[in-house]
C-alpha cells in the first residue's frame, strides 16, 4: 500500500500543509496530528495543498470536520487547494464545497487570508 506524507511550510504568515500519497483511516491520524500541532501553536490560517495526494477516503475528510469549527471560531480557516479531479469528486459528493473554501491554486488561498 502507498504511504502518506504531510509536510509543513509557511508562506506570508499562512501555514501550508502539503499532502502526499494515500489518505485513509490508517494515515488520517498523521494529518490530524499535523493540524493539531498548528492549532496548539494557535496557528489558525491553514492552507492544505492536495497536489500530490492520490487517494482520499471518507475518514480522511473526517479529519477536516474535526477542526473546522475550532479554527473558524478563532478567526482562521482551513482552505483546500490543488485537488486532482478524482479527489475533488469525493469532497463534492460528500457536500464539502458548501462548507469549505476549495480553490485551484495555493497562492489564491494565501492571498485570501491576507486580504481579510
Amino acid at each position: 500500500m502507498e504511504g502518506f506524507e504531510v509536510s509543513q511550510s509557511e508562506t506570508g504568515g499562512v501555514s501550508i500543509l502539503c499532502l502526499k500519497g494515500y489518505l485513509d483511516a490508517h494515515t488520517a491520524p498523521d494529518l490530524e496530528n499535523a493540524i493539531q500541532r498548528l492549532v496548539d501553536k494557535k496557528t489558525y490560517e491553514i492552507v492544505v495543498n492536495f497536489t500530490d495526494l492520490t487517494y482520499i477516503s471518507s475518514a480522511g475528510l473526517g479529519v477536516f470536520m474535526g477542526f473546522i469549527e475550532d479554527v473558524r471560531k478563532n478567526g482562521g480557516d482551513i482552505k483546500l487547494t490543488n485537488m486532482k479531479p478524482k479527489i475533488y469528486r469525493v469532497f463534492d459528493l460528500l457536500g464539502f464545497p458548501t462548507l469549505y473554501d476549495i480553490l485551484d491554486e495555493q497562492q489564491t488561498a494565501v492571498d485570501r487570508f491576507s486580504k481579510n
Binding site: A28, S58, G62
Partner: peptide
C-alpha cells in the same frame, strides 16, 4: 482503538459532522 478511530473519522467525513 484503531477500528474505533477508523469508524469515527469515516463517519465525520461521510456525514459532515464534527
Amino acid at each position: 482503538n484503531k477500528v474505533v478511530s477508523l469508524l469515527v473519522y469515516s463517519i465525520m467525513g461521510e456525514m459532515m459532522v464534527n
